[in-house]
């Protein structure tokens, strides 16, 4: 249920609505909620990609696996579900920057201290940015896409993008790099209900116990290792289903 529908439901059922101001809510006499009422996050939805094309998904798979490689410390970004996470985030309000102030003008020369000033939404950044990255790779590496490069070449390219040394055709390499890296880390460390951090791989890596919500025992035993396994919002299990 989306926030607005359940709010309306709530208004009709539990709150005395001021008859003439029907589109705000009037609260009179008692608190407007009912027992066991909670507002869960958006579920992952049907299997398959919701936003990415297969080619984009393959590129992102390759990127998240270089940002968080599978190694002796644990699973990589792809296995941990980072690509699924990003796909679902792009399908929701984050993907369109629906919540942000996106009215113009967008001057070309903002001050760095003025922060985000691009009109490009995350969906546009991925769509245009990944295409630019693959066009660059095809031109430079014998018609191969990013995902087809070997790990060393991928690392070198990503490093150049991070440092601003690589110019992609018609898209800021830095912007693409920054967005994908930030979203990868979100996916690796967010609650598994969002499709990433599968088997709590991110939390296990660093020793974050998740959402236990009660650490009075830790406070009473300073400087002792914490040994209980992590839990998420759905308990010990990861995502409720494996969507791809």
């Amino acid at each position: 249920m989306t926030i607005s529908t359940r709010r309306q439901l709530l208004a009709s059922a539990a709150i005395i609505v001021f008859s003439r101001a029907a589109f705000g809510h009037t609260i009179l006499g008692k608190l407007p909620w009912r027992p066991n009422e909670v507002y869960p996050p958006e579920p992952l939805g049907s299997p398959g990609w919701h936003f990415f094309t297969p080619g984009e998904a393959a590129t992102v798979d390759a990127m998240v696996d270089r940002f968080i490689p599978a190694d002796e410390l644990g699973p990589g970004g792809k296995q941990a579900g980072c690509t699924v996470f990003i796909d679902r985030q792009l399908s929701g309000p984050y993907g369109t920057y629906e919540w942000l102030y996106m009215k113009g003008p967008f001057p070309a020369d903002p001050l760095p201290s003025q922060g985000l000033q691009s009109p490009l939404t995350p969906r546009q950044q991925y769509r245009l940015g990944l295409a630019a990255l693959n066009a660059y790779c095809r031109g430079k590496y014998d018609n191969r896409a990013f995902a087809q490069l070997d790990a060393d070449a991928q690392d070198k390219l990503l490093d150049g993008m991070e440092k601003g040394e690589v110019q992609l055709p018609e898209f800021s390499a830095r912007m693409l790099f920054g967005t994908v890296l930030a979203n990868t880390m979100e996916g690796f460390f967010a609650d598994p209900i969002y499709g990433g951090n599968r088997d709590m791989a991110g939390w296990k890596l660093i020793g974050f116990p998740g959402t236990r919500y009660d650490y009075r025992d830790v406070m009473q035993n300073p400087n002792k290792p914490y040994s209980l396994p992590p839990v998420g919002l759905k308990g010990r299990v990861s995502a409720d289903r494996s969507p791809t």
């Binding site: 909620w33 309000p93 919540w99 996106m102 979100e186 969002y194 919500y213 919002l233």
Partner: peptide, 26 residues
């Protein structure tokens, strides 16, 4: 009881990163 329920409240992505409960610049 409803909005900061223990089964939904400790969600870093939703509240800490996407800032669901704050003013939206839009």
């Amino acid at each position: 009881a409803a909005d900061f329920n223990i089964t939904t409240a400790p969600d870093e992505l939703r509240y800490g990163i996407r800032l669901e409960m704050f003013l939206r610049p839009a």
